[in-house]
Amino acid sequence: MATMKKTLAAATVAASLMLLSGCSGPYSSLDPAGPAAGSVAALTWAMLIGALTIFIGLILLCWYAVRRNNEELSDAEAQRIQNRWILAGGIALPVVTITALLTFGIPIGHSLLPLPLQQGEGMRIDIKARQWFWEVSYPDTDIQAINEIHIPVDTPVDFHISSADVIHSFWSPRLGGKIDAIPGRTNVLRLEANQVGEYSGQCAEFCGGGHAVMGFTIIALSAEDFEAWLQQEGAETND
């Protein structure tokens, strides 16, 4: 009995490790590295667990409804059962679920908006999407780059995103959600990295033959390294 328990425990640990490692990856939204992706990942897990609970409940209910030994019902009884089921399952259940979702969802959504910062200073980077690469420029400097974006860690960065040709979408899943790059408009996406490191990104809106190879990398540097990088790049561009 004890060995069986141990095996079971080991299996559980192994399974959860596999599950967790299954969730990591260079593009995984479940392996967040910034506040935006972090809050959405938490929301994702909460909703997944909720959805799974409702699903299993419904399947069990259906299974029991099929299996149970039922007696003949009069029409009035059937009517009562029907009203109870529809009011509880058809109306109360979705209303409660939606209310719960909104209570958590609206504040999260609000926190992701590029509203004026309460304190501290953010930074701005301009991105222009083209078939099939990303032009990166840093306002107030002459620094330009292609597909490679250097940002300082722990600083909110506002990406001002536009397109020179068709519609693209800028998405670095470990840092946060995506926003479209649209000709004639500039959309703003605020991202922040919590750790030094490289974060992959890609185009998420179909934009023609090269859609699948329109990747980019966000390189988060410590504040000092970023300053040094700015100096160095700025000097190179001015040469």
Binding site: V40, G109, G177, K178
Partner: peptide, 10 residues
Amino acid sequence: MVPFNWQVHD
């Protein structure tokens, strides 16, 4: 849910 949608859309 809008914030979730921003992640998984497309």
